[in-house]
């Protein structure tokens, strides 16, 4: 058996265009929700049952400099190799696809304890539909993968995302990090051994998002 699929999100290349955020809504027929401007480009403010993918915007001043930084973190489910959220599932409410490794929440997740699932996730990804009680998150576009298509977010990404066999993506991540380290010593691929959706950052992961790293 192959080692399944992986996605690489190289934040050093991400321009924060949010093509991925909207492409995810488009493919998954998710509604646009009513939001408010709260003094940031980031909207919607967080994941919800209607939002599986959001670009998180983080800004500040570079250490010892007047120069600002602006980091874009195209957040999504990491599709863990050994997903902690499955501990909340007894009867295949949460399943792992054999071929790809994608973690999928079925409609039956309405029967499992949401808080257990959410609190078990180191990346704070699971959300619940308040009406149907079904749990939701990114499916890695398992339906598209099965049809030989790239996940919608990957297809739409102009600069930062790669999709492929896990071995190839791991190799790519390693090479890219080595390259980036020449300029940014803090460059790393976050939790690469534990997750299928691997984020490359060039600075402390906490500066991007509280739950960027497990």
């Amino acid at each position: 058996m192959s080692d399944g699929k992986s996605i690489l999100v190289d934040t050093s290349r991400c321009t924060g265009c949010r093509g991925c955020q909207v492409a995810c809504k488009q493919w998954n027929d998710l509604p646009g929700t009513r939001t408010k401007q709260a003094g940031t480009y980031q909207n919607p403010p967080d994941f919800s049952c209607d939002t599986y993918k959001i670009v998180r915007f983080a800004e500040g001043k570079k250490e010892g400099s007047r120069e600002p930084y602006w980091y874009f973190f195209a957040d999504m489910c990491r599709h863990c190799m050994n997903p902690p959220c499955m501990s909340a599932s007894d009867k295949d409410e949460i399943v792992q696809d054999e071929a790809t490794g994608a973690i999928v929440y079925t409609k039956e997740t309405k029967n499992i304890d949401f808080e257990t699932a959410r609190s078990s996730c180191p990346y704070d990804v699971p959300r619940q539909n308040p009406d149907s009680k079904v749990l939701s998150k990114c499916t890695m576009c398992i339906d598209r993968m099965r049809s030989g298509l790239k996940p919608a977010c990957v297809l739409s990404c102009p600069t930062a995302m790669e999709f492929g066999e896990r071995e190839a993506i791991l190799k790519l991540a390693e090479e890219r990090v080595a390259e980036l380290k020449k300029i940014w010593p803090k460059a790393k691929a976050i939790d690469a051994d534990e997750v299928r959706v691997i984020f490359i950052v060039t600075d402390d992961p906490k500066k991007y998002h509280t739950h960027a790293q497990a």
Binding site: K5, N82, P84, M86, S87, S89, D92, I94, V95, Q96, D97, E98, A99, T100, V104, M145, R146, S147, G148, L149, K150, F163, G164
Partner: peptide
């Protein structure tokens, strides 16, 4: 952590397939 059963589906994943004529 208890390992869950896998979804067992045949899967053909070719990169760069054109959108039409997938026939999977």
């Amino acid at each position: 952590m208890k390992r869950r059963s896998f979804l067992k589906m045949s899967c053909c994943l070719g990169a760069g397939l054109a959108l039409s004529g997938l026939g999977l």
